[in-house]
Amino acid sequence: MKFAIQINEGPYQHQASDSAYQFTKAALEKGHEVFRVFFYHDGVGNGTRLTTPPQDDRHIVNRWAELAEQHNLDMVVCVAAAQRRGLVDDGEAERNQKDATNLHPKFRISGLGQLIEAAVQSERLVVFGD
């Protein structure tokens, strides 16, 4: 079965990203397809490569990136939500004249249409939020 995952909250503050990760991992292990993981609202914060948790804590961003690497996951950060919250990739930095970028290379920034498309193309949309 084809799943789409929507994550509304950032890492650490809420369990949403952790739950979504465990769900996505379990779905992939069961042989399901995950069409896209879409990060919205503060959820865009899951895509910053600058995260530095304490050594004894899980690294939420890297964990997503590793799962994406293993399963060729499409992880999309909403552009409008990202701009508000300072999540920047090379393209965004150039467009908005920013002097730095912070998006992890396993994530990509794109429009809200990607969420709608994921919902259209997938058989189930599962939302994780606060």
């Binding site: 079965m1 509304n8 465990q22 379990a26 399901h32 949309l125 599962v126 939302v127 994780f128 939020g129």
Partner: peptide, 20 residues
């Protein structure tokens, strides 16, 4: 249930409604 059971339920029922 565990996370695998959560996935099974999401697949078995026709849709998921999140009361976030």
């Amino acid at each position: 249930v565990d996370y695998a059971g959560f996935v099974d339920l999401a697949a078995e029922l026709d849709k998921v409604v999140a009361w976030v």
